[in-house]
Design a protein around this nucleic acid. Sequence first.
DNA 1: CGGTTATACTTGAGCAATCAAGAATCTATC
DNA 2: GATAGATTCTTGATTGCTCAAGTATAACCG
Lengths: 149, 149
Amino acid sequence: MAAWGGLLRSHATMTRAMNTQLVAEHGITLSDYDVLVSLANAPERRMRRVDLANSVVLTPSGITRLLDRLEAEGWVCKHQCQSDARVSWAVLTDAGHQKLLEAAQTHHADIARLFTDRLTAEELDALGCLLGRLGTRLGAAVAADEPAA
Amino acid sequence: MAAWGGLLRSHATMTRAMNTQLVAEHGITLSDYDVLVSLANAPERRMRRVDLANSVVLTPSGITRLLDRLEAEGWVCKHQCQSDARVSWAVLTDAGHQKLLEAAQTHHADIARLFTDRLTAEELDALGCLLGRLGTRLGAAVAADEPAA
DNA sequence: CGGTTATACTTGAGCAATCAAGAATCTATC
DNA sequence: GATAGATTCTTGATTGCTCAAGTATAACCG
């Protein structure tokens, strides 16, 4: 129970700080950033919108609107799938990748500052492990999807 | 870094599940619930709006609008402070307390199910401890508008 | 085939939270 | 005791997301 409270509070506080900083310094939200990261790590730097939604924990419509913004900025472009006319790929552009690298610099520094200033490497490791298990297992159980992609 | 990703994902997934459940079963959001809990735990079941905002990590205006909803439902009432005309107490009504108890039942069960099904008591304890430290320490550092760079 | 069902995505309406700005009140200083 | 600066709270405009509904395509199956 304390863990839940802690999770709620620490997440809310951190997320707010991170988001504010990203918006102020780079003009993107934390969700935007996460999408850019997901795309950058994806093969050929592209993902189906559905998978993207799953990856950053947003609804399909949320992704549509988020990508609208990113497309308007030229960081992502839409590409129709050949074999399945329903799916449209979200493809990270070079400009988008550039933007990501740019944002990552300060963002990584912020993360490091927030975490490593307050927890030891061991604790961090333990935390990552616990949260990782919670997140993935939970995703499967609750969202009732995601075969551990 | 993995910890941050894990935190983001696990929180997003859990929060969504919890919020959906609370809305569906009790017609309140997770923030609403947290406010009710904070008030219930406060001395005389009342808090200043500023402190409430701090407690659930919302902006002052966010609290105003949230309390508007709660007041409309009769779960909270506004009470002017005698000694300082600026502050208005948010006071938990009996109906509000009743509502909280009602919601807590299923909510606690959900929390327990999500956590204890996936982590041992020891792990839970460790997680709570780590997150607690992150949350509180962070709150002080970042909320104080710590300059970037 | 043709019909049903499932999947991928978009759109309109709505909502909760944010920021920016403002009103009211307290506190400190001269 | 007036004036300047905090502090508490509210309001208007905007944002990012959700839900519900809709379109279009694919897959299954008689």
